[in-house]
């Protein structure tokens, strides 16, 4: 395996301040959760080796500041991204409402070659809070939005409990891979995320 070329897959996590971007990243990479994460200033990233269909990839996960005011930095941080993860807090309506802004802002700043088909993933985080009783964004509402934006895969997660995080990032990795130019990679014929995304339950990305 070591002799194989390790490809880098760059993933950007976006979303309002405090929705849990840093926590999701750390839960996935380090399997840890802390209440003590500070507000992210600027940007940072973690990397993790992932295996997809017998090939090794390096997933480079970028965590960015959540305040809109810092979006102008995106030009530098988003470039070369292979996938964009949009995170909202299921308990905060505004954070869901802003997903559209984040998506558009990303497309402007990263200017991917094929914006129509650029892979996004939506994560609804903090489903653990108050046993789900404080949630204000319905699954139906989110899925409708995801469907309207080209069937964006959707996961509900709890970074704190580690729920669904692994599955979500597996899907993220596969979608990032999908974004790679064909000549660079061997494309397994089982990837078909977009077509089925809306039928999935929140745990689902069967790619």
């Amino acid at each position: 395996m070591a002799s194989r070329r390790r490809m880098l897959l760059k993933v950007i996590i976006l979303g309002d301040s405090g929705v849990g971007k840093t926590s999701l990243m750390n839960q996935y990479v380090n399997k840890k959760f802390s209440n003590q994460y500070k507000a992210t200033i600027g940007a940072d990233f973690l990397t993790k080796e992932v295996q997809i269909d017998d090939r090794l990839f390096t997933l480079q996960i970028w965590d960015t500041a959540g305040q809109e005011r810092f979006q102008s930095l995106g030009v530098a941080f988003y470039r070369g991204a292979d996938c964009c993860v949009l995170v909202y807090d299921v308990n905060v309506m505004k954070s869901f409402d802003n997903l559209n802004n984040w998506r558009e802002e990303f497309l402007v700043q990263a200017s991917p070659s094929d914006p129509e088909n650029f892979p996004f993933i939506v994560l609804g985080n903090k489903i653990d809070i108050d046993g789900g009783n404080s949630r204000v964004v319905s699954e139906k509402k989110v899925k409708a939005w995801c469907a309207s934006k080209g069937n964006i895969p959707y996961f509900e997660t709890s970074a704190k409990e580690g729920f669904n995080v692994e599955a979500a990032f597996q899907c993220i990795a596969k979608n990032a891979l999908k974004n790679e130019p064909e000549e660079d990679i061997y494309l397994p014929d089982t990837i078909d995320v977009a077509g089925r995304a809306t039928q999935q339950q929140s745990s689902g990305c069967e790619c």
């Binding site: 405090g18 209440n35 003590q36 994460y37 500070k38 507000a39 505004k94």
Partner: peptide, 17 residues
């Protein structure tokens, strides 16, 4: 509301150690 919410989120993760 939004300002307050943003501040509320940040003060609880500022130098808590």
């Amino acid at each position: 509301r939004e300002r307050k919410s943003l501040i509320d989120k940040d003060v609880v993760r500022t130098d808590r150690s």
